[in-house]
Nucleic acid binder design. Sequence first.
RNA 1: GGGCGGGUAGCUCAGUGGUAGAGCGUCUCGCUUACAACGAGAAGGACAGAGGUUCAAUUCCUCUCCCGCCCACCA
Length: 695
Amino acid sequence: MDLSTKYNPKNIESKLYDKWIKLFKIENQKNKNYYIALMAPPNITGNLHMGHALQNILLDVLLRYKRMKGFKIIWLPGIDHAGIATQYVVERELKKEGLTRYDLGREEFIKRVWQWKEKNGNDIINQFKKLGICPDWSKIKFTLDKKYIDWVEKSFIEYYNKGWIYRDYRAVNFCPRCQTSLSDLELNYKEEEGIFYYIKYPIKDSNEFITIATTQPETMLGDVALAINPNDTRYLKYLGKIALLPIIKRELLIIADNRVDPKFGTGIIKVTPAHSLIDYEISLKHHLEIIPVINEQGKIINIKEFEGLSFIEARRKIIEILKNENLLEKEEIITHFVPYCDRCGTLIQVIPLQEWFLKMSSLANLAKKSIKNREIIFIPNRFKRISLNWLKNIRDWCISRKIWWGQRLPVWYCQICDNYIVCQKKPKSKCKKCNKNKWKRSEEVFDTWFSSALWPFAILYTPKEKKWYPTDIVFTARDILNLWITRMIFSGIFFMKKPPFKFVYVHPTVLTKEGKRMSKSLGTGIDPLDLINKYSIDSLRFGLIWQTSNLQDLRFDESAIEAGYKFSNKAYNAVRFFLIRYPQMKKSKKLSKKDEKIISEFNKTLKFIEINIENLNFSKALKKFYDFFWNNFCSQYIESCKEETKNNPEVLKNIIINSLKILSIFMPFLSDYLWQIINQKKDKYLINEKWPQKI
RNA sequence: GGGCGGGUAGCUCAGUGGUAGAGCGUCUCGCUUACAACGAGAAGGACAGAGGUUCAAUUCCUCUCCCGCCCACCA
């Protein structure tokens, strides 16, 4: 045995992983009982970031532990087509060539995205493999696999037949750059200064005015009513009267609705159902007309004097006219929250469109019930309130998107009239309304998250795979709790009659040491691959596990990775000590006091680690192991071996071997390497060993 | 407006109703035959602030102030 005094991970890590891959295969695992974990599929646009690294490393620790505890690990890897995100990236590529997606046309554009996917989509998988994690790579799934698509379509149809999916013309969030509607969760609100314009609306047949305040005066062109709070005695006298919309002179009925907050603004609102989500809801109750005045390009429509102006130009012109007519009472600078597109950062417009919606009330109740009944456990527990809170006041989910990259709705529109049919294959029958047979597939695609919501069961393609539902656990970042986790819960319960997982572990968000968000564009990102190159995979794993807590954030400190690097060497040298000191094993003797002590310390440590891994306290488990190994074992016991001739070398070997087994869930490369040396067994791997028992 | 997390050594964080701990950093001394990616030792903290409960509070309760996050239609 010829070992240098330094552990050199570089040569070892790359070779070992290739050997492990076949051990990860589900068919090659001998254990009987399943332990099933759900992988959050990364986007095909993505590059490995710290969040991925942390999430998958932690889950890998748990799964390696479970496997050694006797479970067959089911961990299916996958990638997500990520509709808007991917389309945006490819559009950006096109822009470099001076092209837009419209220059290519839909078909050609989609081809380009597929090309892009083939070229770059697997990068993320290769990067995931760098983490040393143990999913079965032979069963990789993609959200645009044929069978996956089939699940999504069938789910849509099942909801539709249940009466929960409907098509409607209504105000929705719209991104003018992406040219698509968005759900409430895909917006990013920024606090900004804005101008509150106080505008006087004359009361018909009187000299009186009432004043409303708005930050978007251009939308007044679409006003159809004014509304007060029914309990607001100041304005009750106006109830039922008619106000005249300035400039346009449209007659506006003054109505009452308790959604109006008397304390905000002047306590009176203008009702613009076309361009405000609340106003739309008010208009439903009062049967008001929708008058769209801003189109998908942000230009004014339907109003002669303003036709074709951008909404900003219209705003300027309107304010000017109001000033001239003495109808602008005042302007006030306020700070308010303004919605931007979460993907591309463009200012959101609310405009009315024909879209597809999923009724949420029943589904929300399904999810609520299972969370409240503790069929699903959030860890830490406080995170369940994020879900429950969202479900409590949820709106129907706009699931159609007008982008190109994604999965088309299984809807066929009649080319002749306004009829449509919901089904997977092109209808053969004639349209019942117009008796023609001209059907065209919808060009609308699904909200990516509709598809991701089905992930836990839509990735199960064969009868054998179908047994892998429900899963035991999912690890997630907290920013997609509702976007993804909550939606998987109700989808799973509805389609599979069981919640998709028992435990939801919410890991901290990785921030910079200064507490800033890690972001490439801000230059604050740290690339896990750089750290792997600089130290080693095991060191990265050690450092991330070390720093994990159940707090909301993790301020990343590279020194923890360094500690992992040093620890590798410590463990390596402990083994070296054994090999040098005891090249041949003598017959066993009685145990010394020191022997007994270290055995008892080991047993305590083992117990502590088991409890803490089961409870997902990864860093506590690792720190305990570190402390035991470095202080109790190396500094005390091994040191004592140098002098105490009474110590039993078998104890020394035993502790090392069992420690390597424990260490293998945290630092699998180092452990396997050392274990093979000390055991003199080639092609045997710790992942197939049993978790240590009390010595 | 509502909710949540945090404020402990220079940095990142553990921790407990009874005179404060780790990793990294700093200082001193050691290349002693597993390891200088190491060892021995040291410095360094009114545990955000105020009040309360208690024999005793960093730890429990209340309030305040900072930092961060989430939700909500604030027109």
